[in-house]
Amino acid sequence: MSTQTGPPRPHTVLRDELRPAWSAAVRAEWTKLRTLPSTTWLLAGTVAVTVGTTAIIAAATHTSTGPDAARQDPTKLALTGIDLGQAIIAVLAVLTVCEEYGAGMIRITLTAMPRRTVVLAAKAVNLTGLTLIAGLVAVAGCLMTGRLMLPGAGLGTADGYPLVSLAHTATLRAAAGSVLYLILIALLVLGIATAIRDTAVSVGVVLALLYLPPLLAQAVSDPLRRHLEQIAPMTAGLAVQVTTSSPAQVIAPWAGLGILAMWAAGSLTTAGVLLRIRDA
């Protein structure tokens, strides 16, 4: 807030007025999010669930090494935990906004900060930061677990698979992409929760949006199945984890993450508009 010093010049008035509001909003949202007792638990839970799921999947995997056995993707297998870990991040994102509506706190927030989109943006910034930290730890844990456990599942160097390593460009892309994936999911959910405003309904809608399209894709045949997997946030976004070429892959890694980014952008835009035009 050092920008307050010095005489205000006409062309910077707008920026100077905005900047304190902006940083105050981020700080206010940070305090709210930080002091929510569930936040720490949810972040720790994200890491635990993600790494734990990977460990369970790795322990349950027994790959046959016959000549006709399908080629596995050790990196993707190691990152399977994200499938479940994202649910916890989604809950965190829902609570970031819906708890305020549940308690009526949102009215105070919007009175203190009448620029409603700034409130939403501040929430998004804080959520992004927390998800980034949790995501980095979770993905690192997953890759470590994969590196240690997958050789025991028939996916070691002896079976012709490389050890999971960030030195591998595709693996680095999958790892960074998975962290980005979690952030984009958090932002997508933040938008949906802001639009819905009720905790239970938001969690239901969000988890249904994430988990049900892949299930629907299993139930229908091509080309509907292909299109579903190309546009659904989870299947499209997780394409970034694929490191081996497979005919089952329906969308390129970054293109898939791009689809998810569009979901997140659309969701946040809708939320911003609804926040402005609706009564709190």
Binding site: S38, L84, A87, I88, V91, V94, L95, C98, G102, D198, T199, A200, V203, G204, L207, Y211, L212, P214, L215
Partner: peptide, 18 residues
């Protein structure tokens, strides 16, 4: 709490199907 209960419900009752 709604958030925890809905998440737990979906994880226990729906996720195995997925």
């Amino acid at each position: 709490r709604a958030a925890g209960a809905v998440t737990a419900g979906i994880i226990v009752y729906v996720l195995p199907n997925l």
